[in-house]
Design a protein around this nucleic acid. Structure first.
Lengths: 219, 219
DNA sequence: CGCTTCCTGACACCAAGCTGAACGCAATCG
DNA sequence: CGATTGCGTTCAGCTTGGTGTCAGGAAGCG
C-alpha cells in the first residue's frame, strides 16, 4: 500500500514511517503542503495521512482541493488534542477518519486497514444505496435514478456521516456533532428536520429510522 | 457478553444493569476505581463501561493502565454534558466511544453492539435456526431468508433470551422477567402476545410451544 | 365433549418521530 | 441600498409505531 504522510514534526514522522515500513507499506513523506501537492500530482497514493497543523498553509485546504479535483483517495487526518474544530472540519472536508496526537502506532495501523478496506471493494468511488441512489463520497455528489441531486452543506454533512458507516445506526447526538461544533449540545430537532429534507430529495427508502436510537443507511 | 460497569451513581447504574440484563448481557458493577481494578484482574470482560467522574480517583488512569498493560478490551466512557475535555482525554487514553449523560438506554445498546462488532474481527457468529432464520446475538440483528428483520426492543429482549438457551424450555415467568423489572408481576398474557408477534415476523417454526410449561427455540 | 391453555385480531394510549410554516440571517442581485 | 433569494433553525401540530390489555376463537387434552 502506498501512503503519503504529510507531517512537519520530524520525530513523529520518522516513528510513523518506521512503524509502517516495518509492516511492509510504502511511505512517502512530505513536511509541507507545497511539497505534498507536488507529490500528489506525481503519484497515486492509496491513503493520505494528513497533519492539519502545518507551517506553510492549511492542511485542510489541501484536502478540500484534492476532493474538489475529484480525488477519492482515503484520508486520515492527524490533529492535536486541543484542535477540536479541526477534526470536525476535517471530516466535513472529506476526511475518512481522524487520529488525535499522540496516538498509538498500532491504532494507526488499525485505522489504515479499516479505511483501505472500505475503499478496496469498490474501485469506482460510487456507493450504491437503496432507492436508486448513488453517492460519490469524495466528490460530494449524489445521483438519484441517474439524475444529479444537489445537497446543501448541512444536508451533506449529515448524509456523509451515515453513508460512511453503512449498516450502523447513528444516534441523533452523533449526527448532531456533524452539524455543530464538537460538544455543542443544543436541544432541538434539527437532525429530524434534515432527515426529513434528505428523504424528500432522496426518497423514503434510503434513510431508515431506528426508534429510540437514531438513523441508519444500509450498505 | 460480559460487561463491567464502573459507575458511582447508583440510580443510573441500576437502570443500565436492568436494561442490559433484560437483553441477556452479564453485567458486573463496581462503584469505584479500586473495586474495578480488582474485578478486571479476576475476569475477562468483553466491554468496559467507564464513568470518568469517580470519587476515589481518575477513571482515566484506570483506562490508561489497562491499555499500558496491553489490554485491548473495548471501552465506552460516560461523561457529563459539560465535560468536553474529559471526552477528548478519554478518546486519547484509549477509549473507543463515549456517551454523554443522560443517554438513552437503547442508544447504549447500539453503541455496545457497534463497539463489540468492531473488535470481534468483523463478522459476528450467526446462530442458525429453523425456518431460514439467522441471528447475530452481539449485533442484535435477525435475518430471515437473508432479509433483515427489524425487532422492537421488547421483541428482541424476549427472543434473545430464547436464542441464548437453545433447546431449553423457558417458562412464561422467566420470559416475563426479561420484559419487565424484576419482581412486579402482573397477571397478563403479554408474553403470549409477543410470541405471537415474533412468529408473525419470523415464521411459525422458530418458537415452539411447550404446553403447560413455556416456549423453546431449537439449537 | 368439556375444560384448560394458548393464539391473535382489535383497540387505546402515549411517546417518538415527522413536517409544514414561519422567522432570522447573510449573501446576492437589481 | 433596498429587494430577493436561499439556507439554517425553531416550533407546533400531526402522524406513526410500540406497548399492554382484552375478548373471542382455536387447539390440545382428558
Amino acid at each position: 500500500m502506498r501512503i503519503l504522510l504529510v507531517e512537519d514534526e520530524l520525530m513523529l514522522a520518522d516513528a510513523v514511517r518506521d512503524h509502517l515500513q516495518a509492516s511492509g507499506e510504502a511511505v512517502d513523506h512530505s513536511a509541507s503542503v507545497v511539497d505534498a501537492e507536488i507529490m500528489l500530482r506525481g503519484t497515486n497514493y492509496d491513503v493520505l495521512l494528513l497533519d492539519l497543523n502545518l507551517p506553510d498553509g492549511k492542511g485542510l485546504d489541501l484536502l478540500r482541493d484534492l476532493r474538489r479535483s475529484g480525488s477519492a483517495t482515503p484520508c486520515i487526518i492527524l490533529t492535536a488534542q486541543d484542535q477540536i474544530s479541526d477534526r470536525i472540519e476535517g471530516l466535513n472536508a472529506g476526511a475518512d477518519d481522524y487520529l488525535v496526537k499522540p496516538f498509538d502506532l498500532n491504532e494507526l495501523s488499525a485505522r489504515l486497514a479499516a479505511v483501505s478496506r472500505r475503499y478496496s471493494g469498490n474501485p469506482n468511488p460510487f456507493v450504491e444505496l437503496d432507492g436508486g441512489v448513488e453517492v460519490d463520497l469524495a466528490g460530494r455528489s449524489v445521483l438519484r435514478d441517474g439524475a444529479q441531486i444537489d445537497l446543501t452543506s448541512r444536508e451533506w454533512a449529515l448524509f456523509d456521516q451515515m453513508v460512511k458507516r453503512p449498516g450502523q445506526t447513528l444516534s441523533k447526538r452523533q449526527l448532531e456533532e456533524a452539524l455543530y461544533e464538537f460538544g455543542a449540545e443544543i436541544e432541538s430537532n434539527t437532525v429530524e428536520v434534515y432527515v426529513s429534507r434528505l428523504r424528500r430529495k432522496l426518497g423514503k427508502e434510503v434513510i431508515k429510522t431506528v426508534r429510540g436510537v437514531g438513523y441508519r443507511v444500509e450498505g
